[in-house]
């Protein structure tokens, strides 16, 4: 069971500003039925450019409905310039917090607001020009970068909590991890002090080094137990191997793979590597 704050429960049970503003100046629609949540935000401006009315319609869970209701309350009475500054963190604060797995509901609020403002101004949203990273939930690179920067995200799991990206089939996990690394690389002028920076390797260099490490470091150790390992393929950071000899039938082969082989490769090549066993 989710643990929601009283504020979330209150706004879920008695949402404010439900519906559509008639003759709306800005309309923002985000999400879809297939994604499991969607939000349509409409607002109207007065002569001074202040939001005098805002309404929402939401398909989704309790926190999605509460986040939408909160958003409308927060933007009414603000100028567009003020409203623009509202982030998903502000929505979370307004609600007194959200469970980690529900953070994407607040992000959906912020996105609907941006979409509605862009709609009013006749602008394109930056995300529209951005490449889709997560096909399952239609999340673009731009949206992921945004979420990472605004919420100081550092892990794939957090990115999924905040944007849903990577929450489906999982084929984009590698891409998301690369984006995280890229963004963190930009924000941290210097490499993180606790880990000595490994030299940056080109793909070819990385592959060669993986092969070398397997041959010279790992193979001899496994051979002592009558086992052997074969490199099958390398895709990005995924190193696909096949265990032979005693390893193939060993019940502890998973441990060997994850703790020893992966550990060694991470230590000597790159700490982003993931070792997977494939059938041959």
């Amino acid at each position: 069971m989710w643990v929601y704050t009283d504020k979330v429960r209150e706004l879920f049970n008695n949402p404010k500003n439900v519906g559509e503003v008639e003759g709306a100046d800005g309309v923002g629609e985000v999400g879809s039925l297939s994604c499991g949540d969607a939000l349509k935000l409409t607002f109207k401006l007065d002569d001074q450019g202040q939001i005098i009315d805002a309404k929402f319609q939401t398909f989704g869970c309790a926190s999605a409905i509460a986040s939408s209701s909160a958003l409308t309350e927060m933007i009414i009475g603000k100028t567009l310039e003020e409203a623009e500054k509202i982030t998903n963190q502000d929505i979370v604060e307004f609600l007194g917090g959200l469970p980690d797995k529900k953070m994407h509901c607040s992000v959906m609020g912020q996105e609907a607001l941006r979409a509605a403002i862009a709609n009013y101004r006749g602008e394109k949203l930056p995300k529209e020009d951005s490449e889709i990273v997560c096909e399952c939930f239609g999340v673009t690179e731009n949206e992921i970068v945004d979420a990472i920067q605004h919420n100081n995200l550092t892990t794939l799991e957090q990115v999924t909590d905040y944007t849903k990206a990577g929450g489906g089939c999982g084929t984009c996990h590698e891409r998301i991890e690369a984006i995280i690394e890229e963004v963190l690389g930009q924000t941290e002028a210097e490499p993180r002090p606790e880990k000595p920076a490994k030299r940056r390797l080109s793909n070819i260099q990385k592959m060669k080094l993986i092969e070398e490490t397997l041959e010279k470091e790992i193979q001899p150790t496994l051979a002592k137990d009558g086992g052997s390992i074969e490199l099958v393929d390398i895709v990005g950071d995924r190193v696909m191997v096949s265990l032979k000899g005693a390893c193939a039938t060993c019940v502890a082969s998973d441990i060997t793979l994850k703790h020893y082989v992966e550990g060694k490769l991470r230590e000597l090549v790159a700490d982003t590597l993931v070792v997977e066993e494939v059938a041959q």
Binding site: N13, G36, C61, A62, C136, F137, T160, K164
Partner: peptide, 26 residues
């Protein structure tokens, strides 16, 4: 999940196959 929560407020305990309740996003 929204339906379950409203049912739960009325004392009714059921379950759902929706994404929000499956512990994943699908």
């Amino acid at each position: 999940e929204s339906i379950l929560l409203k049912l739960s407020d009325k004392g009714i305990c059921a379950s759902s196959g929706s994404a929000c309740t499956s512990g994943s996003l699908e």
